[in-house]
């Protein structure tokens, strides 16, 4: 049983025009097995929240705290956070030319576990997970995300999530750019990991479509750097119908 506790989180970024405050007091608690959907207008700071939790050097935390099972996440380096059990599926996964997917996956698994995985089970696990995500085995030999289509990159993110078995995963618009079949395949992947490992999920999305596959326990409306309203799955339906006007007007 794990808990990620985000308290009053403030973050800013340096821009040529000066310091820009993006996160303005985020409060959110995610426990194992829970799925929290985060919905909000473009530019409201959802990806910034995701990156800040993962420790991207561009974002400076100016106030607040983040604890994973009582441990101070903000004190940890990027790789320490991953080893502690945080996983970020990025909105725009990065290409790393010349580094093969298989080498990358094995290196990451070894780093997270602190020891090299048993070769035979590892090869089997990778194969099984790739099959379930309908990824051709040929991807193993390609450079990380190098020339992958948008949808292939997203599947590759979920592949990593499944193989690295984190405690809490942040999925930043993993559904964007997926065709109908891929959306189902990726959602099934997330549900499978949830079932097998009790993963807690922060699911950032613009669409209720994915929520038909991955049922959220909570829906949070994210506006202007913080959470403006919380509710159950019905809130997502309402947002889809009404948009964010009523939050923006009051903001």
């Amino acid at each position: 049983m794990s808990t990620l506790e985000i308290r009053n989180l403030h973050a800013s970024v340096e821009t040529p025009e000066g310091t820009k405050q993006i996160l303005k007091g985020v409060d959110l608690t995610i426990k194992s097995g829970e799925t929290h959907a985060i919905m909000g207008p473009n530019g409201s700071g959802k990806s910034t929240l995701a990156y800040s939790l993962a420790g991207h050097p561009k974002y400076e935390i100016t106030e607040g705290s983040v604890l994973l099972d009582g441990e101070d996440v903000l004190e940890m380096s990027v790789d320490e956070r991953a080893k502690a059990g945080l996983f970020l599926a990025m909105q725009y996964p990065v290409e790393v030319p010349g580094v093969s997917v298989s080498n990358f996956l094995r290196t990451a698994k070894t780093a997270i576990d602190g020891e090299a995985p048993k070769l035979r089970t590892w090869v089997k696990d990778v194969k099984a997970s790739m099959e379930q995500l309908r990824m051709d085995p040929a991807f193993n030999e390609r450079g990380v995300n190098e020339g992958f289509s948008g949808g292939e990159k997203k599947r590759h993110e979920i592949l990593q999530m499944e193989l690295l078995s984190p405690k809490i995963a942040i999925l930043d618009e993993t559904d964007s750019g997926l065709d109908v079949d891929a959306l189902r395949i990726v959602s099934e992947g997330v549900n499978r990991v949830k079932e097998n490992t009790g993963l807690g999920v922060m699911l950032i999305t613009h669409y209720t479509r994915i929520l038909n596959y991955i049922t959220p326990d909570f829906v949070h409306v994210f506006v202007d750097g913080k959470i403006a309203e919380e509710g159950g799955p019905e809130l997502a339906e309402r947002l889809e119908a009404e948009g964010y006007d009523r939050f923006l007007a009051s903001a």
Partner: peptide, 11 residues
């Protein structure tokens, strides 16, 4: 690139 790799636990 470094951030991406490190976010997967790689030093």
């Amino acid at each position: 690139q470094t951030f991406y790799l490190r976010s997967r636990g790689i030093s």
